[in-house]
Design a protein around this nucleic acid. Sequence first.
DNA 1: GCATTACCCTGAAAGC
DNA 2: TGCTTTCAGGGTAATG
Length: 273
Amino acid sequence: MPELPEVETVRRSLLRLVGRTVARVATSGLALRAPVDEKRLARACAGARVDGVRRVGKYLLLDFSRGDVLLAHLGMSGRFLFADGDAPREPHTHAVFALDGGGELRYVDPRRFGFLRACSADEVAESPELRALGPDPLSRAFTVDGFADALSSSRTPIKSFLLDQSRIAGLGNIYASEVLHRAGVSPRRRADRLGRARAERLHRAIVEVLAAAVSRRGTTFRDYVDADGARGGNQFHLAVYDRAGEPCPVCNAAIRRVTQGARSTFYCPACQR
DNA sequence: GCATTACCCTGAAAGC
DNA sequence: TGCTTTCAGGGTAATG
């Protein structure tokens, strides 16, 4: 389940693409979240050099030398993987970028909730996917005042607010639960009823939890790996996620699981208010 | 206009 | 043991 720390880890592992040229592109022909336009993909990438790899929220952006951009989202189960050209392809390989000088970058996604689209640099800035995103919490755009303002305008439970990518771009189900625990805030509390002190604690917790997870190269629950196939290390540091019935690491009360917006939420009923 | 629900998809786990 | 059902969750579209 790639969230911001996992996507950032993938981004860093993709940085060694910079300076490499894509020789050709092939796709499986199967639709991901949206159909993949193989011709447009080839027009953007084939014969073009990778000039940069960026991240916005959970989206990855590969900048190509002719000015095109590959916009990618890993969805639930998507992976970018480096491989030898003659190595057998994993099942559910949906795109292959053959590199000049040998080797391939492959996009593998069993559940096909991911997303791949090539566009021009102008189009990407105006793309509905990126325009819909709120501030990235590891960017300067994520300020306490802006966050507090956004909270005050929403009556939804804070857990659902944190998952809303138009409010903050990058949190998913694991880190939303972890952030609320770190801040001592109940997942059921209405966003507009947090108050300034809780908003500040929550803002700090978001930055701290995500930064710590990035430093541990993400959380590997089931199948997340970076482009070199390496697992993350943050799963050993989760306080509440997937720990229903286990003792809270802060106060020893039993961690609870509830369902909010069709997603599981894990929290400590004693220290989250 | 806002918040909630259904849906896409596959693999793992649970249930029979 | 082996088949069937349920569940998980990213984002978006449809519904309330």
